[in-house]
Structure formats: C-alpha cells, structure tokens
Computed example of a mutant assay.
Amino acid sequence: MDFRRIEIIFLIVFCSLDIWLLFSFRNGQQIVSSSNTTTSTVADMRKRDISFGKLDSKAGTAYYLGSRPNSTLANNIGHLRDQEVQYDSTDHKIDSSLNDPISVTKANQTTKLNSFLKKETNVAFGTKYKYAPQLSTSSQIVYAQTDQVGELYDKSGRVTFDVENKKVVGYTQTYVDDLMILHEKEATKSEKDVISNLYTNSEIPNNSKITYANLAYAKLTEAKGSTIYIPVWFVTIQNKDSKVNSLKKVNAFTGNIIKNSTTAATTGDEDSE
C-alpha cells in the first residue's frame, strides 16, 4: 500500500475540511455556552416534565478520523459456517442468511448475540462490535464497530441482525479495516451543553424522557474516495405517552445540531420468555 500517497490525499481532504468547518461554524446555529444559562435551562426542562439523569458537564476530546474502502470482509468469507453468504463489492457488505435462526426475547437477545459474535465462524471480526441500543429497533438489532478511539455509529461499520417472529434469521455486515487519525485531539462539547442546546432549539418536547446520550463517530463527508468521520452526540428522546423514540445528532466539535437526521422507532414491544 502506498502510505505516502494516502497521507497526501488525506492532507488535501483535511485542508478542504478546515475551510468547510470554518464556513459551517460562522453560519451555524447559536450554541448555549454560558454555564449560568445552561443551569437555568436544565431547571426549566424539569419544570416541563422532561426527565433525564445526571448530565456530565465535563468537556472531552476526540479526533477527525479517515478511512478508505477495503475488501477485508470479502477475504474472510471463507471462515464463515452454517450460513449462506453473499458479498456486495460495491458497498463492501456481507449479507448472511443463517441456516438455523436464533430464538431471542427482549430479555436475552444481547446475551445470545454477544456469544454468537465471539465465534469467528459466525461473524468476521465479531468481537470488534458492540450492541448499539440507540440504533436498534424491534426488527433490527444493531451492533456498532468499536475501535481504540471509540464507537463508530455509521453504516460503514456495523452488524445488523434481522429479527422475524422472535428469531434472528440473518445479518448484514460492514467493516472499516483501518481508521486513520487525521489530526490531533480537539475539545468536544459536554453532554450537559449538548442537551441544553437541543432544548433551547426546541428539539426536546415537553413530557419526554432522555433515555440515551452517547458520543460516537459518524461520517461527515466523502472526498477522493476517502471517508471522513467526526465525533457526534447521539441523543435518544422518548415520548412518555406514545413510547416512540426520536434520535437527535449533534456535532460534538461545534455543538451544531445535525438536521434531517431524526429517526423514529417504536420500542414498546415487549417479548416474553
């Protein structure tokens, strides 16, 4: 592999990214940054019957990451057993149909699938994936790829199990072989600042509950065949009456709300043993 050429490509991409981020920052939404304002906002949220746990006010750090398409999964299909597998070379994706579907309930699904992922003959690199409740629904159980720098909440690095009639019948898988750090660590917004900003921008309705707030990496853009990832706060908000979830995304570097990213899924299904 020509690493020098890759470095040059990422340098060009990152310079373009800096210009894009500067423009985005100047035109982005106003961010709640005053500690007094944030404290007042949190108090106001409780008055409006918005439930949440203790919010971390400590800012963290994260990276800009990059990756390039690879055929790692294709090279490992031969290790898989007891399933019918197809590989999509365009999306670099595995589609698998299990010979023996796995019976699951809401109570035991993660335990069973965690064990399933540990065997290399079941899922390639299965131990590098972690259950992602925010991305899962009653019909799809999603595991996100993990790396030493964090979790990847992006379609380019996940295992999605398909559930039909309380049985896992198959899965799709994507995998990022090598995440490259493109820049030194930068400060990220705290959980408390992000939640306050969502509320100030009318993204959190009354009579709701914040069930998850997780920091993970997601795709920012693609350029010259490479993918750039940034840290994103994923915040799940549940309506207390309907039990319907909405997923909000916030750029962890700038605090800007990522629009057109809200998805809803009913999670009120209760499986019995």
Results as ranks from 00 to 15, higher is better:
77 I>W: 04
56 D>G: 03
18 D>I: 15
272 S>Q: 11
130 K>L: 08
190 S>T: 03
64 Y>T: 10
152 L>E: 08
82 D>N: 15
107 A>K: 14
159 V>R: 05
44 D>E: 15
3 F>E: 15
93 K>F: 00
34 S>M: 04
228 I>S: 06
79 H>G: 08
151 E>C: 00
244 V>D: 15
264 A>G: 13
199 Y>A: 03
217 Y>D: 04
63 Y>R: 02
52 F>C: 07
190 S>L: 02
23 F>A: 09
90 T>S: 13
148 Q>D: 12
229 Y>N: 02
236 T>S: 12
223 A>T: 08
145 Q>A: 04
137 T>K: 02
258 I>N: 03
82 D>I: 01
40 S>T: 06
184 E>Q: 12
135 L>Y: 01
133 P>S: 07
10 F>N: 15
41 T>G: 04
102 I>W: 02
214 N>L: 05
223 A>S: 13
253 F>S: 10
125 F>S: 07
86 Q>E: 11
142 V>G: 01
266 T>C: 12
267 T>K: 14
1 M>C: 14
183 H>D: 12
162 D>R: 15
25 F>P: 00
142 V>E: 00
216 A>Q: 02
130 K>H: 08
126 G>H: 01
122 N>W: 03
219 K>V: 14
248 K>A: 14
212 Y>E: 10
88 D>V: 10
189 K>C: 02
201 N>T: 06
17 L>S: 10
96 S>L: 01
80 L>G: 12
20 W>D: 14
184 E>W: 00
260 N>H: 10
265 A>N: 14
93 K>D: 00
82 D>R: 08
11 L>H: 11
59 A>S: 13
45 M>T: 03
160 T>G: 06
176 V>Y: 07
152 L>T: 12
183 H>V: 06
168 V>K: 07
33 S>V: 02
114 N>R: 03
240 K>A: 11
154 D>T: 11
245 N>M: 10
126 G>V: 01
142 V>I: 05
231 P>M: 10
248 K>I: 01
201 N>C: 04
117 L>I: 04
36 N>D: 15
65 L>K: 05
215 L>V: 08
59 A>P: 04
210 I>Q: 02
183 H>Q: 13
185 K>T: 13
42 V>G: 05
38 T>C: 09
233 W>H: 05
86 Q>V: 09
128 K>D: 09
9 I>D: 15
74 A>M: 12
26 R>Y: 08
146 T>R: 00
163 V>D: 06
212 Y>I: 03
23 F>N: 11
76 N>V: 09
3 F>P: 14
173 Q>R: 09
111 T>V: 12
95 D>E: 09
229 Y>R: 07
253 F>Q: 11
58 K>G: 10
18 D>R: 15
25 F>Y: 06
32 V>N: 06
24 S>D: 13
167 K>G: 07
57 S>C: 01
